[in-house]
């Protein structure tokens, strides 16, 4: 039976799509069969980050409306054979999603995959509520700033009340993933600390992804960062997070500022 995992945040631009792609690829690299589903109907991005934008024929809405079969819409990753993408439609909007349609697709995907990663759109409206609707677990992507943390708090409240699991009196297992963590700014006290965030959200931590140019570079070439440069700091953090999702006990590493030799020599501070 597949695990349905929603990657959500409330706030936009915090790294949901990047994290979905990176975690999906990392789980697939760990031998799991994975499908990443783009719920951002009308503003799809996951296909770009996965580098599959030129192979999209059918999409989620086509399958919801019965125009295409699921097998016609699924796109297999070129690099990992057990990683698949179900793209969103760019020409429609979230109203084209229905509760029953999404339920049917999740049920059908459950028979084929170990993991179903749902990339939620920003906001708390239809797209976001349907992305989380059938989730067993949730990754709440949060930046170390107050607006992002408050929106995450709101989303956690919705995960506890608006999901099928919550309505059955069960709980969605929730994890906080802190992204765009800048050790230099943290050291100067310009960001919320990890402790602050965890105290406010009262939810276990899945990982801390450092702010890095590697993330942007990977997105630009259409590759999940864990595939593009597996040795980079963000990739290692995502791989650790994916292993924690699989149940491994991995020690948490808080990224620290690393001054380069020349900077240290010249007394420069990293920007």
């Amino acid at each position: 039976m597949a695990k349905v995992l929603v990657v959500t945040s409330g706030k936009g631009g915090v790294g949901k799509t990047t994290s979905t792609a990176a975690l999906g690829a990392a789980l697939a690299q760990g031998g799991q069969s994975v499908v990443v589903v783009d719920f951002d109907v009308g503003l799809r991005n996951l296909d770009l980050v996965m580098g599959a934008e030129r192979r999209v024929v059918f999409d989620l809405i086509n399958v919801v409306q019965g125009v295409a079969k699921l097998s016609q819409a699924l796109i297999r990753d070129k690099r990992l054979e057990n990683l698949w993408l179900l793209p969103a439609s760019q020409t429609r909007d979230k109203d084209a999603l229905t509760d029953e349609g999404v339920g049917r697709i999740i049920a059908e995907l459950s028979t084929r995959f170990d993991w179903i990663l749902c990339d939620s759109p920003a906001g708390i409206e239809r797209g976001a509520t349907l992305a989380m609707r059938y989730a067993d677990e949730a990754v709440i992507v949060t930046n170390p700033e107050v607006s992002s943390v408050r929106d995450s708090d709101r989303i956690i409240g919705m995960l506890d009340s608006k999901t099928v699991k919550a309505e059955k009196g069960e709980r969605v297992k929730k994890h906080v993933l802190i992204t765009r963590y800048d050790p230099a700014r943290a050291a100067r006290g310009e960001m919320l600390t990890i402790d602050d965030i965890l105290e406010i959200l009262a939810t276990p931590l899945l990982g801390i992804i450092p702010e890095s140019q590697d993330v942007l570079k990977a997105s630009n070439v259409g590759s999940p960062v864990t595939l593009n440069n597996a040795d980079s700091a963000p990739a290692r953090a995502y791989i650790d997070a994916a292993r924690r999702l699989m149940g491994d006990d991995i020690a948490m590493v808080v990224p620290v500022e690393r001054k380069r030799f020349m900077d240290r020599l010249l007394g420069r501070r990293a920007a």
């Binding site: 929106d151 708090d153 956690i156 409240g157 506890d160």
Partner: peptide, 8 residues
């Protein structure tokens, strides 16, 4: 017996 979240 659980936290009251933003928006509740």
């Amino acid at each position: 017996d659980s936290p009251v979240r933003s928006g509740q």
